[in-house]
């Protein structure tokens, strides 16, 4: 369950700001965040993920009050609750596919890193059709393969909320549908809520909820 109330956010170095009077996304539901470029879709995702903190208002995600949590608490929250597929995937070029999937474990010493985790990563990769590419370098992968690596990484920690920032950008319609299907299936299988940022209005059919971010925009 994601609840935002009277949230106000402003970037200090630009004129952009947003105000969200009220937004609720039910647990396990699939929501699309739409709106033109610069309407604050990514910012909203970051607020929900606890990466950014609004100046005012309440943000409660899965029972955690993110607006008043300390940095460390929000990090723990991200690790335990959020799976994030970034806009450019943000894979690490010097690690291979397997290590990129395992990255959350590699950078968080608080997580137990053992053979179970490695096994989980491998079966996840296999389920995504990456089983034979585990030791491949990232720059040798196709766009779609990279995207799947990024999704694997987001799913590895079994998040309760899966965030995807423009996963369909720069793809042909067939692949767009395919990737959405994957995300939907993954979220359904993991019993996770899915929030997808997109500006492709043709894809909104399968979502339970569509949030137009333009309404939240303040200033330029």
């Amino acid at each position: 369950m994601i609840t935002l109330n009277h949230v106000e956010f402003k970037y200090s170095n630009s004129g952009f700001g947003m105000r969200v009077p009220s937004l609720t996304i039910e647990a396990g539901s699939k929501a699309a965040l739409v709106g033109p470029s610069g309407s604050g879709k990514t910012t909203l995702l970051h607020i929900i993920a606890g990466i950014r903190v609004p100046e005012q208002g309440e943000v409660e995600v899965c029972g955690v009050d993110l607006a008043s949590s300390a940095d460390a608490a929000r990090r723990d929250f991200r690790i335990s609750t959020i799976g994030f597929v970034f806009q450019d995937f943000e894979l690490i070029d010097y690690l291979d596919v397997n290590e990129n999937i395992l990255l959350p474990y590699l950078i968080n010493n608080s997580l137990k890193f053992d053979s179970t985790v490695r096994e989980a990563a491998r079966s996840l990769a296999e389920s995504m059709g990456l089983g034979n590419k585990l030791t491949r370098r990232i720059d040798r992968l196709s766009h779609g393969e990279r995207q799947r690596v990024a999704i694997c990484r987001a799913l590895l920690l079994s998040p309760r909320i899966l965030l995807a920032d423009e996963p369909t950008g720069n793809l042909d319609p067939k692949n767009k549908e395919r990737i959405l299907r994957i995300l939907f299936d993954c979220a359904t299988n993991a019993n996770a809520a899915l929030l997808v940022v997109t500006h492709d209005y043709n894809l909104l059919g399968g979502f339970d909820q569509v949030v137009d971010c333009q309404q939240f925009q303040v200033g330029d």
Binding site: A49, I51, A72, R75, D76, R78, I79, F84, F86, E90, I92, L103, P104, I107, N108, N109, R153
Partner: peptide
């Protein structure tokens, strides 16, 4: 820097990034 941001987004502490 980009890599550090990614890690931060994934819940990595600044201390760990510095250590790396």
């Amino acid at each position: 820097r980009r890599e550090a941001v990614t890690m931060f987004h994934l819940g990595c502490s600044r201390m760990t990034i510095f250590r790396l």
